[in-house]
Design a binder for these strands. Structure first.
Lengths: 105, 105
DNA sequence: GGTCCCGGTAAGTGCTAACTTACCGTTAGC
DNA sequence: GCTAACGGTAAGTTAGCACTTACCGGGACC
């Protein structure tokens, strides 16, 4: 139930964000992704594993290759976690800010 | 203009997320924060610097101490970046998904 | 069945991140 | 002015991350 946190760490890496966005455009095979990126194919594989463990992508075999695409469930969970995170933080912050306003001036 | 990305990396660390949430509850001094955390005061200072560099918190001197609190501008910028990130990714993904539906069945 | 392609994994390397202790400047209070 | 609290920074250690090359199994095609 805390894998959403790993999701945030997963997307903190710029290369993984790029991979994520590439996969958003369309499902892709590993070699296909690696062709567009300045890193080796094994490196892409490792990034994909992190994204997969974070629940952000899923893969399926397609004959010779392996197709990766976004996992809407995991992405939705991460978004929900973030929304909750912002809401909790900002409402608490604003509550104190308003309280403080009275004695600031 | 890319500091929002650093913001994501800044919040990827669990300790920094905790600090961020503590600061959302109310502005705090460094030693105050460190008292509640299982790490040393210098470590807290270093985390605060990362958060500050990411534009997520601001600090001001208050006599002997130094008070940290959330920076709504930076937080808003990060939220905006994330919203855009999700929107771009998910709309692209769904567009392909619908396109694919026609030939899937 | 032999030969390619595809991609996961093992092993190793370099760098950076997160932490520690030690030190130092600054402010407050006597 | 002295002393004590607060907090930033320097220096050093350790663990993990992003990457590489080398290797290996599995499916596809002839």
């Amino acid at each position: 139930m805390t894998y959403r946190v790993d999701g945030l760490a997963a997307l903190a890496d710029p290369t993984r964000r790029t991979i994520f966005e590439r996969l958003a455009e369309r499902p892709r095979a590993v070699g296909d992704l690696a062709g567009d990126l300045p890193i080796s194919r094994p490196a892409v594989s490792q990034h994909l594993r992190v994204l997969k463990d974070a629940g952000l992508v899923v893969d399926r075999p397609a004959g010779n290759r392996r197709i990766y695409e976004l996992d809407l469930d995991g992405v939705g969970a991460l978004r929900a976690y973030l929304d909750q995170f912002w809401n909790r933080s900002l409402t608490a912050f604003k509550a104190v800010a308003e309280q403080g306003d009275e004695e600031v001036s």
